[in-house]
Design a protein around this nucleic acid. Structure first.
Lengths: 343, 343
DNA sequence: CTGAAAGCGCTAACAG
DNA sequence: CTGTTAGCGCTTTCAG
């Protein structure tokens, strides 16, 4: 059980004082080369690890950042965490995780424990159900660095890293047009979420830019689920003038669309084109493979950490929140079988 | 910026002393009802949050556990983390994450920072490349609670939570037999990993129990990848007496097998049955949908935390590591189209 | 019931 | 170059 070894232990061992040992360990100037070596050897030998709790209390910083995500079970967030943690690790930071499970109460609780834990900064992706952002503003008021990723709220003037949803949707729709589809529909997501609104806008813009009309009948308001995708197709096919392609707001509704089309013996992509959004893992493996828009998840995590780190270092207690610090990642189209009927 | 409010601030405000405030806040006995109310109201009003760093230094515990995973990008681990974090949260613990990226050096580094961070316990899933377990033993020697999940090492006498790989493989193989397949092959994984060895054993046992012979030609030694699955099928179909079904060590090799069989116009499941292992998300959506064995990931995370918590609470500095504490979860068969040709 | 004092382990300021 | 002292914010003796 060998009592945890502290600086005092090393000092006693070497007939020195704690201060000297501390200086030697941290290579502070004002220590002779000799004692420095002596101390470091002893530390090694005695298997000393600096106590970060004590250090943090003293230094006023923990080298820990807190990350709030809706759920670690969602692929997307696992991937972002991967980017965040690796980058953080490179810079000497550790990552504390908290899941909101999409509920604002949990978000609030997570923020509260993060504040108590004295994390040096917070990265967050907002829960779907969150409409009141008071708890996020509290972070800001405390002068603690905060960066949103993916699910941001622009009106709060908080830095963020997001993918360009508008552009991604534009690419997807334009691609369908280039593939010769004549009537392109859209399966939309919940419109109270900005990311889904942006995708709808991108879809519309691409149509307009190509002199195609925007028709309400061709925009199905669902949610992000396989079932919504099936329902959308049922709705579309009942129209007197049905579409021949669809851009779905994300991959699961695209998947539902594909399933429904296959059930109805409609050939993809020859008779009907489908593009999703998110580039989920399954897309590559289904038949036909799903065209989609990659969101640069790992990159997003890395950028988010880097931005947070800048704020931490620049800030030192007084962070300047300016809207300038908004990083918009370029979405990457991944076009596969479900939409390619040319070439 | 309002200087962070501390116990001293509240004490000053109320003309009390820090000790009293502390007692009142924590509902310690030996405080009058009146002052208690007074203090708690003031704390609320002044927006006081207890500083966990200072508390931890004093108390010798952080209420933080460290979790080492190979990569957050792997679905499986995201899902386990989900279970761990939710359960930890319920019990007042926070979760620090560290990715080994499958490298023992990183594992070592993670453990080192966890020790420095004075986490109350560690959960770990061993990196593929790890062969020397010295760093894990160090945790044990320090008396810090440690629990392995999924990728464990039984010879170290460290508690663990795993799924019963042997049984899962047995179920999978037996199922194929019950479906009337005559010659059942196996795509094996790297045999230096226990989980893969166990699956091979389960496969063999099921064959033997059903009076079917075990043939070396029907066991393909690959790794866990789509390409390995394809290669295995190529190998099997070249045999003079080829198999008519395969149990793959995990879903990606099963996927490769399915792709190769489809390319060769072999009908699944009528002419060839396929079962995988892991129940990855894509399995449900491919055509034909993939039969697999679910590993109870979320449950695994929950059990792992619960076991760790027991060790933490029982231990209080002197943990008893006994082999008794090994939790083996029941694998859950999920049979879909790729293997069902009856009923 | 409340106050004074000490200490968790570390580092920075000030002396020597 | 090294030692002494103090303090980060909290809780827990021990007195009063």
């Amino acid at each position: 059980m060998s009592h945890k070894v502290t600086i005092a232990d090393i000092a006693r061992e070497l007939n020195l004082t704690g201060a000297t040992v501390s200086r030697a360990l941290n290579n502070r100037k004002g220590t002779s080369e000799d004692t420095r070596k002596l101390v470091q050897a002893a530390a090694e030998r005695m298997n000393y690890h600096r106590d970060r709790i004590a250090y943090s209390l003293r230094a006023g910083r923990t080298n820990i950042i807190g990350v709030i995500i809706p759920s670690a079970e969602i692929n997307f967030f696992g991937s972002v965490i991967h980017g965040i943690e690796n980058m953080a690790n490179n810079h000497g930071y550790n990552v504390l995780i908290y899941q909101s499970n999409e509920l604002p109460e949990f978000e609030q609780k997570g923020i509260s424990t993060f504040l108590g834990s004295r994390v040096d900064g917070i990265l967050a992706s907002v829960a779907k159900e969150t409409t009141n952002f008071r708890h996020y503003l509290e972070i800001k008021e405390r002068g603690l660095p905060l960066v949103f990723f993916d699910r941001a709220n622009d009106s709060l003037n908080i830095p963020s890293v997001v993918v360009d949803d508008y552009k991604g949707a534009y690419y997807a729709t334009e691609h369908l047009i280039h593939q010769g589809y004549q009537r392109i529909a859209h399966i939309a997501g919940q419109q109270h979420l900005k990311i889904f609104r942006d995708r709808l806008e991108g879809y519309k813009a691409a149509l307009s830019a190509n002199n195609m009309s925007i028709e309400d009948d061709l925009i199905y308001n669902g949610n992000v689920s396989i079932e919504a995708g099936r329902q959308a197709i049922r709705h579309f096919l009942e129209l007197s003038n049905p579409p021949d392609a669809v851009f779905a707001v994300e991959d699961f509704s695209a998947l539902g669309a594909i399933k429904e089309l296959k059930d109805r013996q409609i050939i993809i992509p020859a008779d009907f084109g489908v593009v999703g959004f998110a580039n989920e893992a399954f897309g590559e493996h289904i038949t036909p493979s799903l065209s989609s828009i990659d969101q640069q998840t790992v990159q997003m995590g890395k950028e988010a950490f880097k931005l947070l780190l800048e704020l931490i270092e620049e800030g030192k207690g007084a962070v300047k929140y300016n809207t300038k610090s908004k990083i918009i990642l370029e979405p990457v189209p991944v076009f596969r079988q479900s939409s390619q009927r040319r070439g």
